[in-house]
Simulated scan of single mutants.
Amino acid sequence: METVLSPELQAKLAHTLTLLQQVAREHAPAVFANSLGAEDMVLTDLIARHQLDIGIFSLDTGRLPAETYELMQHTAEAYPDTRVLVYFPRAESVEQYVNEQGINAFYQSIEARKACCRIRKLEPLARALAGKQAWVTGLRREQSTTRTDMAEQEWDEANGLTKFNPLLEWTEKEVWAYIKAYQVPYNALHDRHYPSIGCAPCTRAIAAGEDVRAGRWWWENPENKECGLHAKISALPTR
């Protein structure tokens, strides 16, 4: 089947591929943080399709939906030559949190929710990024009010390395146009009105007209809806 993309998307795709090639060439070792969302599956396909020297990893928080684990397996089968490493939270930290605060304490306060994210996401992320020069994400500007000021290339002070957002200017429609054109595997929850997918107890379907991030931590205000993975980033000066 012939792959047909709009001229605008073709231009964005070419730019994204050029940036990824630059990351692989100039910032080795580099890794891609694959959350198995639609955007991240586009980047997984690009890295695998073009055999780019960028490692790929996922964070298994221990609370992911069954559909995410199914996609994890499908991804391994669809890209047999591309290895996706999986990082888990430290068992003793999870045990302490659950025993002291409760299995679903994250519903009780922002502090408790962020503590859970810190244990299940931030600490494993730090291990995944250790010794790396750069990391790549699938963040897009239109996803959230917390992401409108992001840059394509940023300095991640917390992790001490450069961060790249190659899909920053892509629209949701363009992400899905690529997925359909190249038959990229994706999470079945997307077909059930889950545009943004995280941990199962912190993710719900959204109604027509709601913001794409409305299903994440829906009990909190929009300006608080980040887990900390993408906080405190400063843009690099342009050369």
Rank of each mutant, 00 (worst) to 15 (best):
E26G: 00
A28D: 02
S35V: 06
R25L: 10
I47H: 06
D60A: 14
E39Q: 11
T44D: 00
D60F: 12
A11N: 14
A48L: 07
H15V: 11
G55V: 00
T16F: 02
F57L: 06
K12G: 07
G62H: 09
L9C: 13
M41H: 01
V23A: 08
R63H: 09
L13V: 00
H50T: 02
K12R: 15
V31Y: 02
L46C: 05
T16E: 05
R63N: 09
F32R: 05
H15C: 12
A33Q: 03
R49P: 01
I56A: 08
G55C: 03
G37Q: 15
D45Y: 14
D40I: 01
S35T: 15
V31G: 05
Q10A: 15
I56P: 00
G62V: 09
T16H: 05
L9Q: 07
A30C: 11
V31E: 02
Q10F: 01
L36M: 14
D45G: 00
L13S: 03
H15Q: 13
D40G: 15
G37T: 05
N34C: 15
G37D: 06
D40Q: 15
L64V: 05
A30V: 06
D53I: 01
L36R: 13
M41P: 02
Q22R: 11
H50A: 06
V23T: 08
G55Y: 01
L9W: 11
K12C: 06
A33P: 01
L52G: 10
T44R: 01
G55T: 06
A38D: 09
N34E: 10
H27W: 12
L17Y: 03
A33F: 02
L43N: 08
L19A: 10
A11S: 14
D53Q: 13
T44F: 01
E26T: 06
H27V: 04
L36S: 10
M41G: 07
T44C: 05
G62W: 07
A11C: 07
T61H: 03
H27F: 13
M41E: 12
S35A: 15
I56M: 12
L43A: 14
N34D: 12
L36A: 11
E39V: 02
F57M: 08
M41F: 06
L36N: 05
L59S: 03
P29Y: 13
T61M: 03
M41D: 04
L19N: 06
A30G: 11
H27D: 13
L20D: 04
S58A: 14
L46I: 13
G37P: 07
V31S: 10
L17K: 08
S58N: 11
G37L: 09
D45C: 04
P29E: 12
E26D: 15
M41Y: 02
A11G: 09
L13A: 07
T44H: 12
L9A: 14
L19H: 07
E26F: 09
R49F: 04
D45A: 09
L19P: 06
T16L: 08
H27I: 02
R63K: 14
P29H: 11
I54R: 05
V42I: 14
V23W: 06
S35L: 10
E26Y: 08
T18P: 00
A48Y: 03
T44M: 10
V23C: 08
A24N: 08
D40H: 05
I54C: 12
A33I: 02
V23K: 05
A38T: 03
L9G: 11
Q10D: 14
